[in-house]
Amino acid sequence: MKERIKNIIAEFGISRLIIVGFILFMFALAPVSGNKISTLLSNVANRFAWNGLLVLSMVPMIHSGCGLNFGLPLEIEAGLLGVTIAIEMGFTGNEAFLAALTIATPFAILFGTLYGFLLNKIKGGEMMIATYVGFSAVSLMCIGWVMLPFKNPVIVWGYTGKGLRTMISIENYYYEVLSGFLRFKLFGVTIPTGAILFFALIAFGIWAFLHTKTGTAMTAVGSNPTFAKAAGINIDRIRMLSVILSTWIAAIGIINYQQGFGYVQLYTAPYSMAMPAVAAILLGGASVNKASISNVIIGTILYQAIVTTTPNVINSLINLDISDVIRIIVSNGVILFALTRKIEEPKK
């Protein structure tokens, strides 16, 4: 029996145990600090539905050995383009959601191909370059949002009539189209079933893909690229495919995030999207070259729990707005922890 516990702990990782302990401690303090556990839990469930897909978009690239996808902001831009064009073309209500998804797809494939082509050129140095490709893309798009000929008054600046607003409310567009769908209460905790189902659908798609022939090839490319090359796999094509897949999921993911959050955030918002997603998947137990769907689910829940419970609990206890600082320390601490682990080179 003792043996089993020991390897569960080793398997689960000590650092994650500390974080889980921290969260349980927060939940224990909840009643003392006057907020109901159920509201906290529904908060976590809600935010899981928003961020799940963004974290899931990390899986294909980690799987195929492209490393942690710090280039997420570039991929999010594809989604934003989809949304803005959909609204510009006058779609409203739930069709806007579907229109946004369909319009975002060609952009996602275009951005994914360019991004994949670049990553193939620089095998080994992906993470650093992905970060700055992401930032360059976002700052370029900022110029784009101002210059592109958008007319629809809902999204254009009121006084100048040129350039998009930074925050666009999608109140009468596709707000809560998924989260609201079949929403139910489970002893006090509201579960946004629609959004979770959407996440489950895409996650199942990924799981299924990894069982197909090309999916298996992608796993092999990630775990030992020379083995895959010797087995006749066109490494660059598989990596390109993984990048396009990741871009598409990220584009869908940001649209899903907006329907939960209620606002479309343009200009400099995507900058800060990469870190939380990377921290979440690492928290779930993924490593720099191995990630599974369960890592995504566990990681997102843990990360969102930290981000949501700490502010409510601590603020009401010692009225100190410390949550923002804790979020920064925890999310970057987890990434740092993963980066300093020795990933055993396939050769060793």
Partner: peptide
């Protein structure tokens, strides 16, 4: 002043 301006990414 209460809300610290954390411009994490040197955007502004």
């Amino acid at each position: 002043d209460e809300v610290p301006v954390t411009d994490e990414f040197a955007i502004e």
